[in-house]
Design a protein around this nucleic acid. Structure first.
Ligand code: FES
Ligand code: FES
Lengths: 141, 141
DNA sequence: ACATACCTGACTAAAATGGTCAAGTTTAGA
DNA sequence: TCTAAACTTGACCATTTTAGTCAGGTATGT
């Protein structure tokens, strides 16, 4: 089970953004330099964050991105959902009655993985961008 | 974040094994048929489970595998560790002082991922094979 | 005008995944 | 003793996913 870079970078970039967007929009170039993330990759990520209304974009010189919501209302779940970082512990299709083995009932561990998925998602639902900001106050410029 | 087949199959196979090993050793062929898992793949998995002393093997005709411990003492952690299904949420090396971005300090989200890792591992530490057996009693033959 | 910064889509090298295949060795039971 | 069941080991491989890169755009403040 591992977290992918896409999810990790998305959160990292948003924390950075949240720290600096008080006055001006923040350019991806700045985030790229500060956090050591490829600019081209960041653009892919922010395209999705924008589609999901987590950030707003401002084009042109001095442009950049700004949060579209209160940091308290941006949960990790929202971020992960936006960049398609999904938690998948079962192999079967959840809606179907069929199991992962092609049989007509769910496998003997299905419930376990379902529990696990809920357990992990709970973590993401309870963490907001605000929580992460408080954690890093001392680093604020 | 997804669970790999190796980990999922390992647990699935052990639950199956635990249910049937009361009297005789259970052959991988039986597990393969009952659970719909490739026999060759199971062999790889059980080789690791054996090395980690979770199961014992009995060779020859009528041979098979038997649990090497009480189901209550086999936690998911042990199983996952045995088959190298590890939870990895950070990108950096934990021991190092360096961050995932090549910089000299940990990145701004490092602590978050660390928390997440602990959160997930806690789930695995608290679940034993015994718990899974009880859950499936009604299916016992 | 022009530099800055967003926007979009195609492309790809490398790694991980989820197995298969081949060639054994051991042992119970006929 | 012969044979088939079942464990043992290691190499191999197709496909998918990941983690980006690259090459073009378009919008806009100064
Ligand atoms: S994981 Fe859902 S049936 Fe096996
Ligand atoms: S994840 Fe550890 S430094 Fe970024």
């Amino acid at each position: 089970m591992k977290l992918t870079s896409k999810g990790r970078y998305a959160v990292m970039a948003l924390v950075d953004l949240a720290r600096f967007d008080n006055i001006n929009p923040v350019s991806l170039r700045d985030i790229s330099l500060r956090q050591g993330i490829s600019l081209d990759y960041l653009e892919q990520i922010f395209s999705k964050l924008k589609k999901n209304e987590i950030v707003k974009s401002i084009r042109g010189t001095q442009g950049g991105y700004v949060l579209n919501k209160n940091p308290n209302d941006i949960k990790l779940t929202n971020i992960f959902h936006a960049v398609d970082e999904k938690v998948k512990t079962v192999q079967c299709k959840k809606e179907s009655k069929k199991g992962c083995n092609g049989k007509s009932t769910k496998c003997i561990t299905h419930n376990l993985w379902d529990e696990l998925e809920i357990h992990i998602n709970t973590f993401f639902e309870n963490k907001s961008l605000k929580d992460l900001l408080n954690n890093n106050k001392e680093k604020r410029v």
